[in-house]
Simulated scan of single mutants.
Amino acid sequence: MEIYNTIKALHLIFVITWFAGLFYIVRLFVYHAEAKQKEDVEQRILVKQYQLMQYRLWYIITWPSAILASFFAFWMLFFTPIGSAWLTMPWMHVKLTFVFLLYLYHLKCHQIFKQLQQDNVKHSSTFFRLWNEGATLILFSVVFLVILKNAINWVFGVLGIVLFSILLMLGFKIYKKIREKNE
């Protein structure tokens, strides 16, 4: 049991750092997109700095965390008796679906990262702010699911976070209009 708890702790640590990387990389995408709206000299300085920050975050923290979180998850699921039992439970199937969505989100972030490294900005800062909510929804869904392990309870939890995200975005839009009006 002690080895299982050690593996679980390592898995959680790397899940936390993985999400931290995903949240921050998209925030850097926001800043990068906004830097493209600046004057030429300021733009060159900011874009170069954001590219460096993105590169370091992505390859030193986010990718290694994703790989290590996955490694310890597989170890827990396939090489421990408790994990093997969890694979038969419906809530784990739903959780693994969300994990699959997280991998897709991560890969899309990697695609965006590569574009921004080539200074090819295809999306606005508003798009990136909305995009950042994707990781939040996945995180809340997985946490509620793992803690509650009950379909009805986690559905309400996910619906709550979707509603919360909608309220956040409405607040963001109101703030943006106020900011634009004051400029």
Rank of each mutant, 00 (worst) to 15 (best):
I161K: 01
T97F: 15
F113K: 02
L116K: 05
L102P: 00
M92L: 13
L145K: 02
V121M: 13
Q118M: 13
V94K: 02
Y175A: 15
K173D: 07
F164A: 05
A73N: 00
F172Y: 15
Y105E: 09
I112Q: 01
N150F: 05
L148H: 03
F72S: 03
F128I: 11
N120A: 12
Y175T: 14
L107P: 04
I174N: 06
G83E: 01
G157A: 02
T136M: 15
K177T: 10
L96T: 02
F164E: 00
H106R: 05
T88S: 09
L137V: 10
T136Q: 12
D119I: 14
L130F: 15
K149I: 06
M76S: 01
F156I: 06
M92H: 00
K176G: 08
F127Y: 15
L116D: 10
H93D: 07
S141I: 06
L96W: 04
F113N: 01
V94N: 09
W154N: 07
F128Q: 07
T80K: 02
S125M: 11
W91F: 15
F71Y: 10
P81F: 13
N153Y: 11
V146C: 10
L167N: 07
F100L: 12
A85Q: 10
H106T: 12
V158F: 10
S165M: 00
G83Q: 02
V158D: 03
I174Y: 15
L148G: 10
K108L: 12
Q111C: 05
S141Y: 07
V99G: 04
F98D: 05
F128L: 12
H93K: 14
I161F: 07
Q115H: 14
S124D: 14
L101S: 07
Y105F: 13
L145E: 05
I147N: 06
K149M: 08
F156M: 07
L148E: 13
I138L: 15
A73F: 00
G160W: 04
L102C: 06
W131A: 13
I147G: 11
F74A: 09
